[in-house]
Design a protein around this nucleic acid. Structure first.
Lengths: 187, 187
DNA sequence: TTCATAACAGAACATATTGTTCACTAATCA
DNA sequence: TGATTAGTGAACAATATGTTCTGTTATGAA
């Protein structure tokens, strides 16, 4: 991608983030984003057909990072064994989420939360299916599998929102414990 | 309230519901609502300052009904003992929700879901605090109380959304069972 | 039934936002 | 260096918003 394109894209993302702190999504106009980002009107529309696309792409980029569990070097924490241990995997993700704290608050708190949440849920859903749910001997025979997965994903999104509401005071390890405490008994 | 006012209010609510089936909240314009409801522009603004207020009031009215657990005569089901039994209470609410199925789908599925969900969560939160959580000897000592309540409320909202996704095939009693199966082990 | 009151209709209005087009300039990287 | 690609800024039609006006109609109390 052209350096100019990256620069513009970054500028628009930043401007949008900044505006989301004080105004709600629907109230923010394309004009404001343009002004804040210092880009031409034409340029904005060349990058994003609509404001919704902008939000969508911003969410996608964020989650792409947060849910990436590549065997990369982790500077702040060691998760070499994360792949096997579901609990460690959750902690790992929570660490990544904490890195994006400010942006997360904006996206989950603001009016745009719904779209964001849908993404969140979707990404985590995949993870649950792969790493937490599978390989388990099912204890719970009352509820259908797909509901259970849905419940677990939803609970995680909820947990993160609760964490944010508490200004992310607790360390990721503790949050992971909470999650495990309400999920482990039902899987 | 004046009969004319009630009529106008109803017309606007109905028109809004109808439009929400096919278009997403943000795409619907005041003009469209006015046209669909057959009311004057002035009239609309006399009732609702903004489109958001309209949605807010619609949600409020719906939940006021769904979460009303007055000792009223229930035609479809008997819940005279609902006040004591949390599970019966949940079933009771699920019955009310099913009555509003179409409107619920619209409100939870569409883009406006976030605001709606917030209401939903809030109403149920109160109920959890009063009827499900209280009076229980706490088994779970790991997680904080306020997180647990949050988790339960969030799980209920999630459950209803899952139910809707499945076109409310299952009877309320079965859904209540599911809820109990994932909640009872953690309280 | 009468009548003052309050609600509604509809048109006209200024204002603001959207998304597009066009001619022009500047940066990129091969 | 030079062809290509990205960005600028102004102007635009189209549409939405919210307000103000004047006139009409329904309501419910006397």
């Amino acid at each position: 991608m052209d350096r100019r394109q990256r620069k513009t894209r970054e500028a628009i993302f930043d401007a949008f983030s900044k505006l989301l702190i004080h105004n709600s999504y629907s109230q923010i106009t394309v004009q404001e984003i343009i002004d804040e980002a210092n880009v031409g009107r034409t340029t904005f529309y060349a990058h994003f057909p609509t404001k919704d696309d902008l939000l969508r792409e911003m969410c996608a980029e964020l989650f792409e990072h947060v849910f990436s569990h590549k065997p990369e070097a982790e500077p702040t924490h060691d998760f070499s064994m994360a792949a096997d241990d579901p609990k460690a995997l959750v902690t790992h993700i929570l660490y990544h989420l904490k890195e994006h704290g400010r942006t997360l608050i904006i996206l989950l708190t603001c009016e745009s939360g719904e779209l964001f949440q849908r993404y969140f849920h979707q990404y985590f859903h995949e993870l649950v299916t792969l790493h937490i749910f599978s390989g388990n001997t099912r204890k719970n025979t009352i509820v259908p599998d797909d509901f259970l997965i849905d419940h677990i994903s939803g609970s995680f999104v909820n947990l993160v929102r609760w964490w944010l509401k508490n200004h992310m005071k607790q360390p990721p390890e503790e949050i992971a414990e909470y999650f495990w405490a309400v999920i482990q008994p039902v899987v």
